Amino acid sequence: MRIDEATLSHLQEWIGKSERYPDQVTSAPYRALSATLDRNDPEPKPGIFLPELWHWLYFLPHPQQSEIGPDGHAKRGGFLPPVPLPRRMWAGGRLRWVSELQIGDAIERVSTIKSVTHKSGRTGDLLFVLVEHQIFNQKGLALTEEHDIVYRAAPSPDEKPPAPTPAPRDAQWTKVINPDPVLLFRYSALTFNGHRIHYDRSYVTQEEGYPGLIVHGPLIATLLVDLVREHHPGRKLQSFEFRAIRPTFDIHPMKVNAALDLDDPSGQTLRVWAEDHEGWLTMQAKAVLSP
């Protein structure tokens, strides 16, 4: 399926569309993700700080079973434009915290489609959708997030993957992660993510052509932030931005890494990245700590 001018014009009619989604920061998802990440966090009582990126446990879409497509995603349309390309990926994002979210908060997310853009790449059509999320609690705006979604065509049999990028070798803090199927399944369950590439091995290898289950981009980003939290206890994030570079699969261990950005004399900025078992860069990120 090619994205012609008429199709792109139709998809761009979604620009400016918005939706509101109320929720509450309850304790059960916090407790479950803490266990999934092997953390020993305090009991999530009202007023306890919700760690950065854990808001992804809330505002979860709940499509009816009859609305699920063959890949496990909800069928196209609704809030997001009905892009006629089969592969969809959370390509990255940028987040800025204004105030803390806490257990017990009544929260609301206002989401707006900011842009729909098309590019013709080496492997065919690419369609980029930029969604802005604003999250409010009883104090007002708590968090802004820009969410990059990329759609692409299915690969051709003779398609070669892009050349990999070596990961930096100057990490100050490193952690080895075993992204086994149980970890991926638990994270899929916590985020109500039915996408079969994360838990259905026969589907991801036979239908999508990948060598193994794909580790969720948001999970990798969460593991990167968790590494920062582990080595900077008591420090809150002011901002975080990340970009997916290369898929990570469950068939080998992976690493998350961090190092102080020497270009920032304040010591608040960290370079953060993930790499696969061969040392190839899989996600690149920057974290800025509050003073």
Rank of each mutant, 00 (worst) to 15 (best):
G16I: 12
K17Y: 12
S18E: 11
D23E: 03
D23T: 11
Y30L: 05
T36V: 09
T36K: 11
L37V: 14
N40C: 15
N40K: 13
E43S: 15
E43Q: 13
I48E: 03
F49Q: 06
F49N: 01
E52Q: 09
P61R: 08
G69I: 02
K75H: 04
R76Y: 03
L80A: 12
P86R: 13
R88Q: 00
R88P: 04
G93V: 10
L95A: 12
R96M: 04
S99L: 03
L101W: 10
R109T: 02
K114A: 02
T117S: 08
H118T: 09
K119N: 10
R122V: 06
L127T: 02
L130W: 11
V131E: 12
Q134V: 12
N137R: 09
Q138K: 07
Q138T: 07
K139Y: 11
A142I: 08
D148T: 10
K160L: 13
P166L: 05
W173M: 07
W173Q: 02
W173A: 05
V176E: 01
N178E: 13
P179N: 01
D180L: 07
D180Y: 15
D180V: 11
D180T: 07
L184T: 10
R186C: 06
S188W: 14
S188I: 04
A189G: 08
T191A: 02
Y199S: 01
Y199I: 01
S202W: 15
G209S: 10
P211S: 09
H216E: 02
G217Y: 10
P218H: 00
T222P: 08
R229I: 00
P233T: 01
R235A: 00
K236F: 13
R243V: 11
A244M: 13
R246K: 06
A258C: 09
A258V: 10
A259N: 03
D263F: 12
P265Q: 02
P265D: 04
S266N: 07
Q268P: 03
L270W: 08
V272T: 09
W280N: 15
